[in-house]
Design a protein around this nucleic acid. Structure first.
Length: 662
DNA sequence: GATATCCTAAACATCA
DNA sequence: TTGATGTTTAGGATAT
């Protein structure tokens, strides 16, 4: 048996490693793929991209020269831009993956978009005004001044005065190369020597999505500068004749030029208050919140009419608009490519995770699946909008990686299982919600649930209307809910029996139909170390600082908030009566157990009175008054109870009996 | 390192 | 006698 146990440990450990490695590989792979995207995809010509880059470099250089000629001291000397990645707000690919959720995925896509833009507009940032935040400045390391073509042009064009600038460029170039080499060593950039472009994904971590607008502005700024230079007789465009120009003639015919505002026929009433901006947004995708949504514009327009005028005057068909449109098109294309790849990866992941079909085992004892489902729904409804909702069906699964709850990504796949997962099990993982959300996953995947046997047993019992189960029913619940428990029968059944006998919280009751097991919540809560008592900050820190990486930040916040709600409740904080209050150890099995109990026993079981939650018949060794006090420790339920019964004072933390476990 | 918790394994008892 | 159920002990692993 020990051998079996050992092998099991070995078996689960790799699953953990696989999970981690999959995370890593996913992220890393994404980087590689992203990098190759820009190089190999057929929709965006690498030549075009390179030309675009060169053009941008030239423009930046022109602007730089202009500043030099006009005595402007460039605020953006190379050394001011090249910063170490430690300075940036980088996160590791693993971290990024762990926190990845649908909304975050959206942010990631935006990063992709920003990176695309950066590839096109990076160089001009060298001349950026000093007001630019350092966070953005550090991203300007990837420049393409190394282009020999660029240098050659400068050799021809620049006079003696510009030679100094050229030397500066060379220095910049060297610094950039050094930095790229450093990045290569860090594995952040997969660059071949002499390769001009940096893989998009490699830039990902150095790019802040919030700079997207600024980048667009910068694109516009370059164009404006170019126009200004033309006016000042510094037009160098003729020297870049062999580079891709932004002129309309160079734009591919299939490029959907931005619909000209001339054709707008939906001019609305000229004056509208800001509350109607959403309507405007709906009427024109480039107008919203009283602003022009043209990339990099943000011009304020009071109404649609003004916006139309603005659109006609500022964003007419010219070189700049065409270039911006082209860039935007590339952004979209890149996003589409990336989305396709991510979707494909997601599909592969789901296929992998569900490739093992659940065993065709019939369960002849329905165990309140309906209530479980309804509970699941209620919990899901309780999730903040935007939070990832785990799979509710095997047919439409969501990759566990995206799940906010820690079940799969941080626990199961990490191979810790129900065993020795105190952190998540006690403080973070709401069993009910986790099970509800990942119900199908656990039913189908041979993944060990990250809960203790005691927690699972308790949940199984509390899930039933009468809060009691026979041993066999508990068995069935385990096998029904978890594919993992459909094997290793002897092991876990023994463990179940062991837990039932060992823990005082499980009370054996002689019933009509035989012996059933119930849960003594008081005892169950006694098991919990009196943690997270008092300080809301402590609660939040505990929740957020326990290292369950996959736990969505919002989800953590939600949990913390729910806990805070309880802890901040004056009525709850000023309790004083005895036993029931022991239940309010908010720590332990879960801040969760709070949530979990809410769902299991509180609002989700309308037909069940609080008293029913406790032991019902022939509870051995339990004081009669216990039955009344052994209500669920649900935070919400407690809050509700306290609100509805102001006189029912309960002590939350004080006078908690010391550990008398076992 | 001590302690607590949890898991696993196993032996044993009871009962239908 | 057998299997299910229940109790208890022991040891290892992990986290605090």
């Amino acid at each position: 048996m020990m051998v079996e146990s050992a092998t099991e440990t070995i078996r689960t450990t790799p699953s953990n490693q696989n999970g981690v490695s999959s995370l890593s590989s996913q992220s890393d792979g994404g980087g590689r793929e992203g990098g190759s995207n820009g190089d190999t995809n057929g929709e965006i010509s690498p030549v075009d991209l390179l030309h675009l880059q060169q053009q941008q470099a030239l423009q930046a250089a022109r602007q730089f020269i202009l500043q030099q000629a006009t005595g402007l001291n460039s605020p953006s000397m190379p050394h001011t831009h090249i910063t170490t990645y430690k300075d940036s707000q980088m996160i590791t690919p693993q971290q990024m993956q762990q926190i990845l959720s649908p909304p975050q995925l959206q942010a990631l896509l935006q990063q992709q978009q920003a990176l695309m833009l950066q590839q096109v507009t990076h160089t001009h940032t060298l001349t950026r005004a000093p007001h630019k935040s350092p966070h953005t400045e550090h991203k300007m390391i990837f420049v393409w001044f190394s282009s020999s073509h660029f240098s050659h042009l400068f050799q021809q064009q620049l006079g003696n005065k510009q030679l100094a600038f050229q030397q500066q460029l060379i220095q910049m170039q060297q610094l950039q190369q050094q930095h790229i080499l450093n990045l290569q060593r860090q594995g952040l950039v997969n660059l071949q020597p002499g390769q001009g472009a940096v893989p998009i994904q490699s830039l990902q971590q150095a790019m802040c999505p919030t700079d997207l607008q600024q980048l667009w502005k910068d694109v516009a700024g370059i164009q404006s500068t170019e126009e200004a230079m033309k006016h000042e007789g510094l037009d160098l465009t003729t020297n870049s004749s062999n580079t891709t120009s932004y002129s309309a003639s160079k734009v591919s015919p299939q490029i959907p030029h931005h619909p000209l505002p001339n054709g707008q026929n939906s001019v609305h009433t000229p004056k509208r208050d800001s509350s109607n901006h959403e309507e405007h947004t709906a009427s024109h995708p480039l107008y919203g919140h009283g602003e022009c949504k043209w990339p990099g514009c943000e011009a304020l327009c009071e109404d649609m009419g003004q916006f139309i005028k603005h659109l006609n005057s500022e964003h007419a068909l010219d070189d700049r608009s065409t270039a911006q449109c082209r860039v935007q098109m590339q952004v979209v294309q890149q996003l589409e490519i990336q989305l396709a790849k991510e979707s494909e990866r997601l599909q592969a992941m789901m296929t992998h995770l569900h490739m093992r079909p659940s065993e065709p085992k019939s369960f002849n004892q329905p165990l309140n699946l309906a209530s479980s489902v309804s509970l699941s729904k209620r919990e899901s409804e309780g999730f903040p909008e935007g939070l990832p909702h785990p799979p509710t069906s095997a047919a439409t699964p969501i990759t566990p990686m995206r799940q906010g709850p820690s079940v799969i990504s941080s626990s199961s796949l990490h191979g810790v299982g129900p065993i020795r997962r105190r952190n998540s099990d006690k403080f973070c993982t709401p069993i009910a919600s986790e099970l509800a959300q990942n119900c199908e996953f656990y039913k189908n995947a041979d993944v060990r649930p990250p809960f203790t046997y005691a927690s699972l047993i308790r949940h199984a019992i509390l899930e039933t209307p009468d809060r009691q189960l026979t041993l066999n029913e508990i068995y069935n619940w385990f096998t029904r809910m978890f594919a993992y428990f459909r094997r290793n029968t002897a092991t876990w059944k023994n463990a179940v029996r062991h837990n039932l006998s060992l823990h005082k919280c499980f009370v054996r009751v002689e019933n009509v139909k035989g012996a059933v097991w119930t849960v003594d919540e008081v005892e169950y809560q006694k098991r919990r170390p009196p943690k997270m008592t008092g300080s809301p900050t402590l609660v939040k820190n505990m929740i957020s600082g326990l290292g369950f990486g996959s736990l969505n930040a919002s989800y953590q916040a939600a949990l913390a908030e729910s806990s805070l709600g309880l802890l901040n409740s004056p009525t709850l904080m000023n309790n004083s009566t005895g036993a029931s209050l022991n239940m309010l150890h908010v720590g332990h099995d879960d801040v969760s157990s709070t949530v979990e109990q809410v769902n299991s026993n509180g609002s989700c079981s309308p037909g069940l009175s609080p008293q029913q939650y406790g032991h019902q018949v022939h509870v051995k060794e339990e004081p009669a008054e216990m039955e009344e006090d052994s209500r669920p420790v649900s935070l919400m339920a407690s809050v509700t109870q306290n609100l509805s019964m102001p006189g029912d004072e309960r002590d939350m933390d004080e006078e908690l009996p010391t550990e008398e476990l076992e």
